[in-house]
């Protein structure tokens, strides 16, 4: 008989079919879940900045407080990237600013150039929330949420890198259970802070929640407004 017949080995396809039927959805879901996760996509973003500013030196070694440069962080929603003038406090050349440290540094040339009215410095934003998400730095910082909770140990980073996913689920983790992420507001920029006397952060956080009246909201309109 000349007509096509299914050969015997097609029987071997049956377990394969079952495996595919069960495995394919699992595979696709996992692929999407891990592939599209901000932990995969966003964490580890480490752009090259126009000036190789080292947080490790300034915030870490020199111990300059975060707020020296990001001086709006406790007053406004936005934590300002400092104006060039702030840099020039130390890195001027007498004419454009008073400080003289690294007067001859090549790397700082773009800075001086910008200060003289040339091309502005375009710092690359590392932690960039979607535009539909509203985040208020002051509201967090003044209630005892340290910089480190979202930005990691910036004082140890030569180049700033995103270490947290900044996804909605991640935000909610803290909004649902803020206690272990709180510290006394005095210690807000002390990125290496640990509670005294061997107390747990949870324990300290509970007290601070009470003290600062911390009741994070979970409504849509908290962040999407």
């Amino acid at each position: 008989m000349s007509l096509y017949q299914f050969p015997r080995w097609t029987d071997a396809l049956r377990p394969l079919l079952g495996l595919t039927a069960l495995g394919a959805p699992v595979y696709l879901v996992l692929l999407f879940y891990y592939g599209a996760s901000p932990k995969t996509l966003a964490v580890g973003y480490e752009p090259t900045q126009p000036v190789p500013f080292s947080h490790a030196v300034h915030a870490g070694e020199l111990g300059i407080d975060c707020r020296y440069c990001h001086n709006t962080v406790d007053k406004a929603a936005h934590a300002a990237i400092p104006p060039i003038a702030t840099c020039l406090n130390c890195h001027g050349d007498g004419e454009i600013g008073k400080g003289r440290i690294h007067l001859d540094s090549e790397a700082l040339e773009p800075l001086r150039e910008a200060a003289r009215g040339g091309e502005p410095l375009e710092w690359v934003r590392v932690h960039d929330l979607a535009d539909y998400a509203y985040f208020n730095h002051a509201a967090h910082v003044n209630k005892g949420v340290s910089c480190v909770e979202c930005h990691g140990r910036v004082d140890q980073m030569e180049v700033v890198r995103q270490v947290e996913p900044l996804s909605m689920g991640w935000c909610l983790d803290c909004h649902r259970d803020p206690a272990p992420r709180l510290r006394p507001v005095e210690e807000i920029t002390n990125l290496g802070w640990v509670p005294e006397g061997g107390r747990s952060r949870e324990e300290v956080g509970r007290e601070l929640m009470e003290k600062y009246n911390v009741h994070p909201k979970q409504d849509c309109s908290t962040c999407h407004r």
Partner: peptide, 8 residues
């Protein structure tokens, strides 16, 4: 109802 990064 799939788990997602929005935790919603």
């Amino acid at each position: 109802p799939v788990p997602n990064q929005m935790a919603m």
